Amino acid sequence: MPLKASPADQALLLDLQQLDTSLQQLAHRGRQLPENQALAELDKQVAALRVRLTTEEGAAEDARRELARIESDVAIVEARVARDRDRLQNSSSQKDIQALEQELQALATRQSALEDVQLDVMDRVESSGAVVASTQGELDALAAKRSELDAARDVSLRDVESERTHAVANRETIAGRVPTELLALYERQRERYGVGASHLRARVSSASGVELTGNDLATVRSAAPDDVLLCPDSQAILVRTDESGI
């Protein structure tokens, strides 16, 4: 036996469908918040900067290690110079003095070369450190921006959730007024086809956007006001009102 429901009860389904559509839109809005898109782009920038920072920190560490090695070499040369000068002051052998003076001259040349390299490496340490600090500064700025976006997203989400809560409450109220069997059919059709109720306005089904003609229109015209009909195209419950044009 075909399902029967009063036109007033069937009209409630249009309000229910409107709320369900609003809930779908709110869910989509929650997923597609501009803050989420901005955060995703920000995370890409952060990831790229972290890769860059790792490379820069490696270069800075290499420069520091090289400087430490050169400083060690300089210290060794300085120690040998101090030792040779001490020996030179306490030596009475002309041969030893001549040898020590030659070694001191060679050590002076070595020390000068090392100190030149040391200055170059110190410049590298300073410049690489500045590069690391600059990139870290960019990361810190992005972290601050992310905090702001997180806060803005939370506000937007609260707004969406507030609207959703209101819509759910209204839906529960309206669903409570719909007869059980009619509501079950609505829910079943909505789950299967995405839309549970369609308003027939000027012979056009709102769910499908298609105008009813021929046999479909004749079936609608011949149906009793309390007959529950399905839209031939969308399979949603076809709700007739004074605007249906039949």
Rank of each mutant, 00 (worst) to 15 (best):
A175M: 09
E35D: 03
D140E: 10
A108N: 09
Q111C: 03
D242I: 03
V210T: 07
E57Q: 11
A130Y: 04
N90Y: 13
G209T: 11
N36F: 11
L88H: 14
K44P: 15
Q118W: 02
S208D: 08
R85W: 09
R87Y: 12
V155F: 10
E78A: 05
Q24F: 08
G129M: 00
L114T: 01
Q105F: 10
E61F: 04
L185V: 01
Q235T: 00
L39A: 04
T55R: 09
S127Q: 13
D116S: 12
D73Q: 08
G137E: 11
E71S: 02
I70N: 01
L157Q: 15
A68Y: 06
R203W: 03
D73K: 05
R29M: 14
R87N: 09
N36M: 12
R29N: 14
V210K: 12
K145M: 01
D150P: 05
D233V: 03
L23A: 06
D226L: 04
Q17R: 06
A141Y: 05
A113S: 02
V178W: 02
A27V: 11
A75C: 02
E172F: 10
Y186N: 00
Q37L: 10
V121Y: 03
D15E: 13
D62L: 07
R192M: 09
V195I: 15
L12A: 08
L157K: 14
S134V: 06
A63D: 05
L16N: 10
P225A: 06
L157H: 11
Q189D: 00
S134R: 14
